[in-house]
């Protein structure tokens, strides 16, 4: 079985974003792997380790050559091979991204396309659904739990809903996106999991051994042209603005005054 995981590079969410003119200023920004994609890599690794049914985990990213660094960090975590589709990752919209992923899917024909539920830069939460639609594959989004069948013919996806968990079994191949809870200690199970098997919470850190091995792992570089994908822009950014800065708070003397201010000044009542 082969798992294809997508990984996007995003500006480190712990940094302050600067707006320059009509766009976000990315110069001097530190980049990291989109956290949800890192969780997808972790989930894929857990599936591989406990099932013995996964032969290869391939990580796909789209971006400039610089993005190799983030790809390499996924390989250092333990993924087997990388694919870099060269393109401008900052200007791609969800549709374009989905087209590229579809083309790579068709080249690789994996049994499972595992993705983060969204990228924390644009927060679009669209790509996986678009890809599933284009490929006419079953989709199961926001997985908080995964359980792989013994014969790898299907995967059960647990999704958090109001008041509990909902479980859906989807046949493979299919498209699955993961949510934050997928990196909880017992979130990923396979027929090979031991009863008391627990992982440390969170995506694993690359060990030095993993980092050294990652140096030797293959990264295929493909251009959008090679994939034969047409990329007209569907979504155009017209402007970017920071939210207005908050003015200082005030102390009110009475409830009446508060109600009055909420009604007449803030106009929220």
């Amino acid at each position: 079985m082969k798992i294809l995981v997508t990984a996007k590079r995003v500006p480190d969410p712990e940094q302050k974003v600067k707006v320059q003119g009509d766009a976000i200023d990315l110069s001097g920004m530190n980049f990291v792997v989109n956290p949800f994609d890192e969780y997808a890599v972790e989930a894929a690794l857990r599936l591989k380790e406990s099932s013995g049914a996964v032969d290869e985990i391939v990580v796909l990213t789209i971006g400039s050559k610089d993005v190799t660094q983030q790809l390499r960090s996924c390989l250092a975590m333990g993924a087997d091979r990388g694919i870099l589709v060269e393109g401008d990752d900052d200007s791609l919209d969800s549709e374009q991204t989905a087209r590229i992923i579809k083309a790579v899917y068709e080249r690789e024909s994996p049994d499972l396309l595992l993705m983060g539920k969204q990228a924390v830069d644009g927060d679009n939460n669209q790509v996986a659904q678009l890809v599933a639609g284009k490929l006419d594959l079953p989709q199961a989004c926001f997985a908080g739990q995964l359980e792989l069948e013994g014969d790898a013919s299907a995967i059960t996806v647990g999704r958090e809903i109001d008041g509990g968990m909902e479980f859906k079994k989807v046949p493979l191949p299919s498209v699955v996106t993961v949510d934050l809870r997928i990196v909880m200690p017992t979130a990923v199970k396979t027929a090979g999991s031991k009863d008391n098997q627990e992982y440390a919470e969170g995506p694993r850190y690359a060990s030095l051994k993993g980092i050294m091995q990652a140096k030797k792992k293959k990264i295929d570089e493909i251009s959008v042209g090679d994939l034969g994908v047409e990329l007209e822009q569907w979504v155009k950014t017209t402007s970017v603005e920071t939210p207005p800065s908050r003015s200082a708070g005030i102390k009110v003397e009475s409830v009446d005054e508060l109600v009055d201010k909420l009604q007449n000044e803030a106009k929220v009542l």
């Binding site: 660094q69 390499r72 960090s73 250092a76 969170g202 850190y205 690359a206 060990s207 030095l208 980092i211 050294m212 990652a214 140096k215």
Partner: peptide, 17 residues
């Protein structure tokens, strides 16, 4: 190098978390 930086990230996560 890039490998040093990846390793640095690992040690930092270990220390902080």
């Amino acid at each position: 190098t890039e490998e040093h930086e990846l390793f640095r990230k690992t040690v930092r996560s270990f220390a902080e978390k």
